[in-house]
Design a protein around this nucleic acid. Structure first.
Length: 270
DNA sequence: CACTCTCCCTGAAAGC
DNA sequence: TGCTTTCAGGGAGAGT
């Protein structure tokens, strides 16, 4: 499950490949992923990629023809880089053929991912992008920002953290881990948090994401697969999928919030 | 506006 | 052993 750190790491790993070659053609093997592939996407021919960046969990590839490709890996999406022979595998849904004969393939069994294309000029008003909240690693994401967002809010703090209109890129795992690190109960009402707790939460979110990006960078360097795929790195989760609190030894509680599993320590997180 | 629920999908794991 | 059920999750859009 690619979370923000994986997306960041995968994109960094691909940067050199994408920026130094052109896309020769794009081939699709089915009409859609979570949303349909736009009809004009396969008309992309011999075009250079001029910029590659991330917004939330979206990868954005800016093309020299004033179009931008928007990619999301969803739950199970992988980008596989084939340098030699390519045999189409199950769930290989879209192929980016590069001018050096490398083929970058999006493989996504659960098809929660998406690939679309839009005018670069309109990227910030694109419906997938325009309502996105602040980036967690942006310096403007600080205790003052989050405190303001917590004012008069009644839903559980974990639900607020997972709201993309408020803050992006904090998925289920990192929401659980950040709340655990900040010793805040995921059920807690945002308006009842102290400024110190909010401040601690912001610090935890940034720290955990940055650590994961660093770990990803070194892991991917060591574990580049033979087919070129990046895969996902193993994390050391403190609370997610754990049975016992590493701090106090109490059993980790497992509950559901917004249809997602939340793990927390009822003793450490108040 | 604030917030929750439903749905999309497949494969792994658990249940029978 | 083999079939069926359950569960996991991101995010758009519908519903309360």
């Amino acid at each position: 499950m690619p979370e923000l750190p994986e997306v960041e790491t995968i994109l960094n790993g691909l940067k050199t490949h994408l920026l130094s070659h052109q896309i020769n053609k794009i081939h699709i093997n089915r009409p859609n992923l979570r949303i349909p592939f736009p009809p004009d996407i396969t008309k992309t021919k011999r075009v250079a990629i001029t910029r590659v960046y991330r917004r939330a969990k979206y990868m954005l590839w800016e093309l020299e023809n004033n179009k931008t490709l928007i990619l999301h890996l969803g739950m199970s999406g992988k980008l596989l880089l084939y340098k030699d022979k390519y045999l189409k595998g199950k769930h290989d849904h879209i192929e980016f053929h590069l001018t050096n004969d490398n083929i970058l393939v999006l493989n996504d069994p659960r098809r929660f991912g998406l690939v679309t294309i839009t005018d670069t000029n309109n990227i910030s008003s694109h419906k997938l992008i325009k309502n996105l909240g602040i980036e967690p690693l942006d310096e403007d994401f600080n205790a003052y920002y989050l405190a303001e967002k917590c004012l008069n809010k009644t839903r559980p703090i974990k639900n607020l953290l997972m709201d993309n209109k408020i803050i992006v890129g904090v998925g289920n795992i990192y929401a659980c881990e950040s709340l655990y690190a900040a010793k805040i109960n995921p059920i807690k009402c945002p308006s009842k948090l102290t400024f110190e707790q909010i401040s601690s939460l912001v610090t935890s979110i940034k720290k955990i994401l940055i650590e994961a990006i660093k770990a990803g960078g070194s892991t991917l360097k060591d574990y580049q697969k033979s087919d070129g795929s990046m895969g996902y790195f193993q994390h050391n989760f403190a609370v997610y999928n754990q049975f016992q609190c590493k701090n106090c030894g109490v059993s980790i509680k497992k509950i559901r919030q917004l249809g997602r599993t939340t793990f927390y320590c009822s003793s450490c997180q108040v």
